[in-house]
Write a protein that binds this DNA or RNA. Structure first.
Lengths: 245, 245
DNA sequence: CCAAAAGTGTTAGATCTACACCCATGT
DNA sequence: ACATGGGTGTAGATCTAACACTTTTGG
């Protein structure tokens, strides 16, 4: 679904025929900023709880494309790697009750949202993006779209707390492949800048020298010039990602 | 869906209202037998290609339960661990064309199977089971249900070849947790018996002494008595799984 | 006594970890 | 000169792979 096709909540609800029923995607979008690991959340209009950016899957759309579309709408980013980490398909996933209350409050007629009241299976994707490149943008269905520190999450809707926890596990397990990617890193960066990203994502400090050896051992970086920052210390080397292998 | 509820293909098609539309589960069931890694496949009636055992998800059923139900129907096994390994959700997953030809051949009216002609998203689960405990049982929709060596697969329907490949990767990556499980192992077994299972699943030989050290290092087994087989050699120790930890 | 299978020991190499030291830089 | 941050060396521990040797068993 393109954002521009939807002007209101009612429009949105009436587009249901284009979607695969009872299937949604949720995107857990992480970023590192000022030594804090952050997650992008949205607050649907009229709701107290926050939720993961999510969407539905059109009939002629790959699931992953639907997730990409969601990511693009909320952040403006394209071409970011999204990884599927889990599917949430318990019959008891309770999205119905709060949804129903919410729509009734909005004055939407019952038959218009019955399709949303069914049980939903959601496919969870996660991404790690560059904080500064993101322009968080709420959909027409939401008041806000902003970053939250992973350690200070607000009240979350449905089972989104569990989904975030699961995504975080996957992120940390696959950090090398996620972080050492041209989507995320600037063209040139110092080893220390990279280390700070790792430490932020992992939530633990790392040893400088061992970190450097491990990363260089992956054989993904090449050293270029030094950077003279004006700091009163040795100028660090700059690194860049090697071309594809 | 319970097998007993379905007496014919037509019955089956008419149960569609109970299912989550456009969603299926596929089970990649592996076993080791006579040093061959095998996969359980079914051959739908009237089709040349073979397929993975699969099913649909009822409205009030966990996705994983649907996979368990499929596994139970084809193998008779209950309480086997099933792990979700991937979701196949490309819009181009082509199940439609061959399905349509197939149903027309069976003389089923068009409106009865239109729901099946839509694009399907399938959730892939894999299991490793005990070959000798399985009684392969075709559904009413299939002629056969049998094991195939992983190295000699028949013509496969849809994208099931890719799904099996992906499941095999996951199996090999998680072999310790899959294999060292009470579902799969007999109460008592020798280190060599275990090694043969590993070698079969991995498709590579392992060194006896290093294998033993690695496995015992996992701290999951305890040694019991020796087994006197009558063989002209030292009697091996028997091991059993430690209780839960 | 021998062959076969099982158990155990050992060594070289790699990898990880922690600590230590040296180098470059601007004040 | 020196404090600061960056680069590199190294010793010890741990893990791994490969090899060798010993032990038990029935013929």
């Amino acid at each position: 679904m393109l954002e521009t096709e939807v002007a209101s909540l009612r429009d949105f609800l009436l587009k249901r025929n284009d979607y695969i029923p009872q299937l949604s995607v949720d995107c857990v979008v992480f970023s590192c900023h000022e030594k804090q690991l952050k997650v992008l959340l949205v607050q649907p209009k009229g709701m107290e709880a926050w939720a993961l950016p999510g969407g539905f899957v059109s009939q002629n759309e790959d699931i992953e494309s639907a997730a990409q579309e969601t990511l693009k709408e909320r952040t403006g980013l394209t071409e970011v790697r999204l990884d599927l980490f889990q599917v949430f398909g318990k019959a008891s996933r309770n999205t119905q009750d709060s949804m129903r209350a919410y729509f009734l409050l909005q004055g939407i007629a019952g038959h218009e949202f019955e399709w949303l009241m069914k049980r939903f299976v959601t496919v969870g994707y996660y991404a790690l993006v560059n904080f500064l490149e993101v322009r968080p943008t709420p959909s027409v269905l939401a008041n806000s779209c902003t970053w939250f520190d992973i350690s200070r999450l607000p009240l979350l809707a449905f089972d989104h707390s569990e989904i975030i926890r699961s995504a975080l596990d996957s992120l940390r397990k696959n950090l090398d492949s996620k972080l050492l990617s041209p989507d995320l890193l600037p063209a040139l960066f110092t080893m220390n800048e990279l280390q700070v990203l790792y430490e932020t994502a992992l939530g633990t400090p790392l040893r400088r020298n061992n970190f450097q050896r491990r990363i260089l051992g992956l054989d993904l970086l090449e050293r270029t010039d030094k950077r003279y920052t004006g700091g009163a210390h040795k100028a660090p080397y700059l690194y860049r990602l090697k071309e594809k292998r």
